Simulated scan of single mutants.
Amino acid sequence: MTSPTATPTRHIFLTLLGLMLVALNLRPALTSVSPVLRTIGDDLSLTPSGLGVLTTLPVLFLGLAAPLAPIVARRLGMERTVLLAVALLAVALLARPYLGVAGLFIGSSAAGACIGVMGVLLPGIVKRDFPNSVSLLTGLYTALLCFGASMAAGATEPLRLLFNSDWRPALGFWMLPAAIAAVVWWLQLGAKHFPKNVGAPKKSLYRDSLAWQVTLYMGLQSALAYTVFGWLPSILQDRGVDAVAAGLALSVSIMVQVITAIAAPWISSYMRDQRFMIVLVVVLTLLGLAGCIYAPLSLMWVSAVILGLGQGGTFSMALTLLAVRARDADTAARLSGMAQGVGYTLASSGPLLTGLLHDVFHGWEVTGLFLGLIGCIAIAAGLGAGRKLYVLDER
């Protein structure tokens, strides 16, 4: 078995390139749908509730698949598991626009599951193979994740117009980055294998209150994020914004996330704990959402930027908590599996309930109150999770 320190130099470039390309594909499957959501609904006669289910399924399966990632990785190895996931992602993204309503829902679910597996395993590969550059590579990883999400949000509607107003090739286009990532990942496959984790039975995190606070914060901030991914363009279009501008507003909001995704954890590292930063970024998120729903459209771009700054920070602080609330790497990995598995499953309710509320009340005002409630509970969970404590410690 090749140890991380003995990794041949010729593999380093392909490994880094593969990591970054896979990271680039962790959000386009989700953010590419929302700019053409209304077009899909009109074409396939889907109600707002049905569209809510469509935006919910990828997030739900992302959460359901996350706990399976380490199980599959123990049998296949981490690299082969990621290769399988990114290859299946490409297939799902190509198939989902062309197999009718059932294919759209099944393909979206499969894409979410593939993303869930990759999202759990990639941080472990970074920590294992580049232990002296974790902060740098995590920053690049987060930046490319945001860039991929922004690119899909901003380009899907123009692609639809380019393809004679057909949303199917516009969605199918996003299999190309996944296919490229699969090829590059395959080229560096086999250089390393993650060792099996054999040891004494571990104390369950599911009985630890701090682990649940971290999980709840992860899930609630994700619920806000995936609601924005799925519904922000529709919210703006219903307020009178054209489809291209609405998709571009989501793209801009996601793009500016890079700023706080890197800055928020760095600034919080100089503080006594993470509570102040968590409250700050959640409040920014709620202000941005309120602006997009209630403020005059002349403030749309300001609201989109504030929303992005808030959500970039909420996401990066959630990832930071997974590391700083654990005393060792093994516990951090277990906490990551719990927080992402349970948290993303919880987060799937956000887009679904948003669609249901819109269906019932025929507007977005009540939805804004619902999202505000989610944010307030996220702040409460974050105040607990942000304390300078460690999971599994006696308290």
Rank of each mutant, 00 (worst) to 15 (best):
M1G: 13
A6W: 02
L16G: 00
L16P: 03
N25Y: 04
P28L: 01
P28N: 00
T31G: 13
V36I: 15
T39C: 01
T39H: 11
D43G: 03
D43E: 09
S45P: 00
L46D: 05
P48H: 02
G50H: 06
G50A: 12
L54M: 01
L62E: 00
A66I: 09
A66L: 05
P67F: 13
V72R: 04
L76H: 08
L76E: 01
E79A: 04
V82E: 05
L83D: 07
L84K: 03
A85E: 08
L88Y: 00
A90Q: 04
V91S: 09
A92P: 08
L99W: 13
L104R: 02
I106H: 06
S108T: 12
S109F: 01
G116M: 09
V120D: 12
V120S: 08
P123C: 07
P123G: 04
K127W: 01
S135R: 14
L136S: 03
L137C: 08
T142Q: 05
T142P: 05
F147S: 10
G148Y: 09
S150A: 15
T156F: 04
E157T: 00
P158V: 14
L171G: 13
F173W: 11
M175G: 11
V183I: 13
V183T: 06
V184I: 15
W185H: 10
W185C: 11
L187M: 13
G190C: 13
A191H: 11
K192D: 04
H193V: 15
P195G: 06
K196V: 09
K196G: 13
P201L: 15
P201E: 07
P201R: 14
S209K: 12
V214H: 10
L216C: 14
G219V: 01
L224K: 06
T227H: 12
V228C: 10
S234P: 04
S234V: 05
I235L: 14
D238T: 07
R239V: 05
R239K: 15
V244I: 15
A246S: 11
G247F: 11
S251F: 10
I254L: 15
I254N: 09
M255F: 04
M255A: 15
I259P: 01
A261N: 01
A263S: 10
P265N: 11
W266I: 14
S269I: 00
Y270G: 14
R272T: 12
D273V: 01
R275K: 08
I278V: 15
L280T: 05
V281H: 02
L287W: 05
G288Q: 07
A290K: 02
A295F: 03
L297V: 03
M300K: 12
V305E: 13
L309S: 05
Q311C: 11
M317G: 02
A318Q: 02
T320S: 11
L322Y: 13
A323E: 03
R325T: 00
D328A: 04
A329Y: 00
D330H: 05
R334G: 07
A339K: 12
Q340C: 03
Q340R: 01
G341W: 11
V342R: 06
L346I: 13
L346T: 02
A347Y: 12
S348R: 02
P351K: 10
P351D: 05
P351H: 07
L357S: 00
L357A: 06
D359H: 08
V360E: 08
F361G: 05
G363P: 02
L369H: 06
F370H: 06
C376N: 01
A381T: 07
A381M: 03
G384H: 00
G386H: 09
K388D: 15
D393V: 04
